[in-house]
Simulated scan of single mutants.
Amino acid sequence: MLSHEFNHGIKPEVSTSESIAWLSQRAWVEIDLGALAENVKQLRAYISSQTQLMAIVKADAYGHGAVAVAQTVLSAGADWLGVATVPEGIQLRENGITAPILVLGAAQTREQIQAIASWDLQPTLCSPKQALVFAETLEQGGFTDKLPVHIKLDTGMSRLGIDWQQAGEFVQLITSLPKLEIASVYSHLATADSLDPTIMQLQQQRFEQAIAQLDNLGLKVPKLHLANSAGTLADKSLHYDMVRPGLAIYGYYPAPHFQGRIHLQPVLGVKARITHIKEIQGGTGVSYGYSFIAPQDMRIAVVGIGYADGVPRNLSNKLQVIFQGQLLPQIGTITMDQMMIDISHVPTIQVGDVVTLLGRDRHTEITAEDWATQLGTISWEILCGFKHRLPRVTVNY
């Protein structure tokens, strides 16, 4: 049985996604919570029982809906949640999430620091200046408890983090600050999805050398973590005390060579209604710029979704949709709110029927990876691109 829930709380009494589609009128994103839970269980079974799992739910859970995703992954076996910003963490707390939450981004302002402490979030620290501002703000704010903080080392990503060679000095500073306590030391892998492990191994060596610095200074760290989705699947020696999968939770492999190590199922689908049908003569141009001209008389349908919803305009005349298991070509330039498809060979299709842009219909499937390949980008970008005027509808197959 399926259950459906819009993010704003409406729970229609329905049994199929098609029967609730009228609520969204034109198009929606469908989130399969059953697939999400199974992906977490697959990851949980792949790692040691002694290794914790932090589910990355930043960017509204990669466009899947952070609250519903957080609730599901925690029930399925995740131990921690990772977000990018303070407001993302607050959103989860406001919706009753009590699990530990790591803010992966570098909070800097006093307002952000006060919010982190007030909402029981755990920050990432990347520099001595940032650590001192945290300590001063907490002291001045009258916070009595120590704030758990996570030390980010730059081992080769060249993004956030203090240079790994300064790990000992940095940790010594933080341990001297009365309002802070170290919860973990971590780093981030830049090339774990590559077939060539050289850089990944170099980063791990640097991470190990940094930890050796701490050991030599008698500084004990409660938790170490390094592996993203690719690192988790690439090498179990990267698992340490915790792994931080993101993309894999949502059903995609970071690279093709990871397929088969665990079984992942895409969680997100995109569906839209046919809003209009017409017949055009051969030689007729379709949509802006006439990038498609009908080679013969055709029957075409307008679908109520466009680039303002997150369908890339550069997929114009390349995209396909699925109707009852059959692939139908999109034609003409994708517009802001609509697109056209060729239905010349599907006489039964009607206004109000639903087509699948991403997801499975019968034995046919289109994935975010398919779009990414056509566009020369990555599946992460596709998943994060669907705008919030598309309602999120949760199902549990």
Rank of each mutant, 00 (worst) to 15 (best):
V243S: 05
L23M: 13
I20C: 01
N39H: 08
L147M: 12
A66D: 02
A190Q: 09
A70D: 01
L147P: 00
S291F: 05
A301P: 08
P254V: 11
V270W: 06
T191R: 14
I20V: 09
A272N: 08
V149C: 14
K318P: 06
K11T: 12
L327W: 13
F6G: 04
N216P: 00
F134P: 03
T367V: 07
L23W: 05
L132G: 02
G352A: 07
G231S: 05
M242T: 07
S379P: 06
E30A: 02
Q52T: 14
Q108L: 15
L219R: 03
I31K: 01
K146Q: 15
D297G: 14
L160G: 02
P128T: 04
L160T: 04
G82P: 08
H257Q: 14
D215E: 15
A78K: 01
T175P: 00
I378M: 09
Q42Y: 05
I113Q: 04
I249H: 01
E169S: 09
A192Q: 09
K11R: 14
E208T: 11
H225V: 03
T175N: 15
D193A: 15
Q122N: 13
Y46N: 08
L189G: 04
G82Y: 10
A210I: 06
L177V: 10
K146L: 06
N39L: 11
P266C: 13
Q165L: 08
V67N: 02
V354Y: 02
I56H: 06
C384D: 09
I101H: 02
T373S: 03
W371E: 02
A21D: 03
Y397Q: 14
L74N: 10
Q122I: 12
A70L: 11
H225F: 15
L358N: 01
L138R: 01
A27E: 07
I10T: 05
I31E: 01
L390S: 09
F6T: 13
L189T: 04
G82S: 08
R261Y: 09
G385F: 12
S287Q: 13
S75C: 05
A272H: 11
I182V: 15
I199Y: 08
L315P: 06
I249P: 01
K146G: 04
I10V: 13
V286C: 12
L358E: 02
T373H: 03
I162M: 11
P12N: 08
A45W: 01
T377I: 15
T98P: 02
T364Q: 15
H388W: 07
W80E: 07
Q50I: 00
